[in-house]
Design a protein around this nucleic acid. Structure first.
Lengths: 222, 222
DNA sequence: GTTGAAATTATGCAAATGATTAATTATGCG
DNA sequence: CGCATAATTAATCATTTGCATAATTTCAAC
């Protein structure tokens, strides 16, 4: 019931209110809250104040809609990671692990704090990463792998004593760490019996950075 | 088509082949692979070689079936964590962080390597932790919180210089780390371009332990 | 034996759901 | 103006899906 209920007439609109984007926004929210199978195309259309067939008109199948949602912001995150890494590497001075981690995390963090839809996308990502279907694997690889691999390479150079396979493995751990926690802030309060106050702030990002940096740079166990 | 196709007659069976357990096993697999919404009660029944109404007879609703699946092994994991922690604490010598982490992880790890269904349950857990519905939150709290909180307490005593809220937060990170990675071994190979050989073995557990221990024990950032 | 409870099946409904089709309207171009 | 094209709706179809009911068979106790 969030959408306007002025009945829209069929036909080409005078000045398109970007219905395509509205659909993407609402789909993002519903996919995030209910998952791919749990979200219904009907509900997405209704929320967007749009006929169900319009969703199909723009995106084709439900799966295609989902992919479009993932790609829209996933590419933003991946792109920002590339840019930040470029900046860091072109600085002359070799970066620290913590700096690399921060650059890696920042795009996610900023998206999460960029209004309700950014947060929804972060939740959606977590679901995507728990998904087992081959299609989900492919989508993740397509959207995220390139940037992650560059960070692995950069970390490898900063941590020459740690074999690259180990760095890769640890980076996969790191993905789990932040993915899960960005998705699941409430959980932290469960575990602390609410002793932790305002965790939405930068303090949490600092803690995350500390945790991941320490894990990545940990000495090899003999 | 994995199940026998000898047509079973209705009525009380001579000697129950524990159909209840068979149903739980198949439900576990399908929930793990397709999620709560993606798994269909019909398919679960078919896989179990059983009439759909029997599922309802034993478990009631689909949601109740799901809960039963989660509780069955979730309680085993939680229980084992308690036992291992008791052992460690009653040893006299104060445990190390790595020892605590190892005790915490071992039940999960062993379940994962205890045959196909254990691995399925681990995947199912990851999905459960990505779920946003209130029901999922409640279930997770019910099954896991008590044991996690005990480990937080124990870690707190071993790491007196780190405030307990910080430990709690880091423990939440740790949950993400292992949950995600147990679920997602294949991902590691994606990121390493297959350079990592046999990662199913104990080497991976060691690496996970190293990563999490370092993260938990990391010095506070000023 | 009869009987009653337990376990199991066949059958089927009503709602939800993804997709589809045909109609409708506005816009820009020749 | 007339017409092809783009954007949008109403309507509905075919399937899937969770749940329900009634029937059937076996077992154990009396």
């Amino acid at each position: 019931m969030t959408s306007s209920n002025t009945r829209r007439k069929p036909g080409r609109p005078k000045e398109g209110p970007e219905l395509r984007e509205v659909i993407l926004d609402k789909a993002e929210l519903l996919f995030a809250d209910h998952g791919f199978n749990g979200a219904k195309v009907r509900d997405i259309a209704t929320e967007a104040g749009v006929n169900q067939a319009l969703v199909r008109y723009y995106f084709g199948s439900k799966q295609d809609l989902f992919d479009a949602v993932v790609r829209r912001r996933g590419s933003v995150i991946s792109g920002a990671r590339h840019v930040l890494l470029d900046e860091l590497l072109s600085r002359g001075v070799a970066p620290t692990v913590a700096e690399l981690v921060r650059c890696y995390l920042r795009p996610q963090w900023e998206m999460k704090n960029s209004g309700s839809n950014g947060a929804a996308f972060v939740r959606l990502q977590a679901r995507l990463h728990a998904e087992q279907e081959e299609h989900a694997f492919r989508l993740r690889r397509e959207v995220y792998d390139a940037s992650v691999k560059r960070y692995i390479q950069a970390l490898s150079e900063v941590l020459p004593e740690i074999p690259k396979e180990v760095i890769s493995t640890r980076m996969a751990f790191a993905v789990g760490t932040y993915m899960f926690m960005l998705n699941d802030l409430g959980r932290i309060n469960d575990l602390t019996d609410g002793q932790v106050g305002d965790l939405g702030g930068a303090a949490l990002l600092d803690q995350l950075e500390t945790f991941i940096s320490a894990g990545l740079a940990a000495p090899l166990n003999s």
